Amino acid sequence: MTRRKKSRSIADKVTIRTGRRKDYKQWRHENPDEVTSSRRYTDKKRQQRKLQAERKLARQESGQKIAIHPDKPEQKDD
């Protein structure tokens, strides 16, 4: 007797109609409003984006300041 391969896919675990992967894909396509990311996943992604923004700001502030047009006199808008 052969062992079944362990699958991390949720499609195999969901039993809609026949429980086949094709049926699950079709159900997801027909009901996009019922398919949402888990709260844990969205919280994780939100946290990652916050950290990424903080790192980007830190890089910008620690970077070298350069004068774009040092010899050009400043113009005032009137």
Results as ranks from 00 to 15, higher is better:
Glu30Met: 05
Lys76Val: 08
Lys22Gly: 10
Ala67Arg: 10
Ser37Pro: 12
Arg28Ser: 08
Ala58Gly: 04
Met1Ala: 15
Thr2Asn: 15
Pro73Lys: 07
Glu30Val: 00
Lys5Tyr: 12
Met1Lys: 14
Pro32Ala: 03
Val35Ser: 05
Gln26Leu: 09
Val14Cys: 06
Gln52Thr: 10
His29Tyr: 13
Asp71Thr: 04
Thr36Val: 15
Arg8Pro: 11
Ser7Pro: 01
Glu30Cys: 02
Lys65Tyr: 04
Ala53His: 02
Pro70Gln: 00
Gln48Gly: 03
Ala58Trp: 00
Asp77Gly: 09
Thr2Glu: 15
Ala53Glu: 03
Ser38Leu: 08
His29Ile: 03
Gln64Lys: 13
Ala53Lys: 08
Asn31Arg: 02
Lys76Cys: 01
Gln52Tyr: 10
Ser37Met: 15
Asp43Glu: 14
Leu57Ile: 02
Arg21Leu: 03
Gln52Pro: 01
Lys76Ala: 02
Gln48Met: 05
Arg3Leu: 14
Lys13Ala: 05
His29Asp: 04
Lys45Met: 10
Ala53Val: 04
Leu57His: 04
Ile66Val: 13
Arg21Pro: 04
Thr36Ser: 14
Gln64Val: 06
Ala58Gln: 06
Ala11Gln: 11
Lys13Glu: 05
Asp12Ala: 08
Gln75Arg: 14
Lys25Phe: 15
Arg17Gln: 09
Arg49His: 07
Gln48Ala: 06
Ala67Gln: 14
Tyr41Ile: 10
Ala58Arg: 01
Lys6Asn: 06
Gln47Glu: 15
Arg59Pro: 00
Asp23Lys: 03
Tyr24Lys: 14
Ile68Phe: 14
Arg55Met: 03
Ile68His: 13
Lys65Asp: 04
Ser7Cys: 01
Gln47Cys: 07
Leu51Phe: 04
Asp78His: 14
Arg55Leu: 04
His29Arg: 09
Pro73Val: 05
Ser38Asp: 09
Ser9Ala: 10
Lys72Tyr: 07
Arg4Cys: 07
Leu51Met: 05
Lys5Glu: 04
Leu51Ser: 06
Thr42Leu: 02
Gln47Ser: 11
Arg46Gly: 02
Ser37Ile: 15
Leu51Trp: 09
His29Gly: 02
Met1Cys: 14
Thr2Val: 12
Ser7Gly: 02
Lys50Val: 11
Glu54Asp: 09
Lys13Tyr: 05
Glu74Tyr: 13
Val35Trp: 14
Gly63Leu: 01
Thr42Arg: 09
Thr2Lys: 14
Val35Pro: 03
Arg40His: 03
Lys44Ser: 11
Asp78Ile: 07
Ile68Ser: 11
Lys65Cys: 08
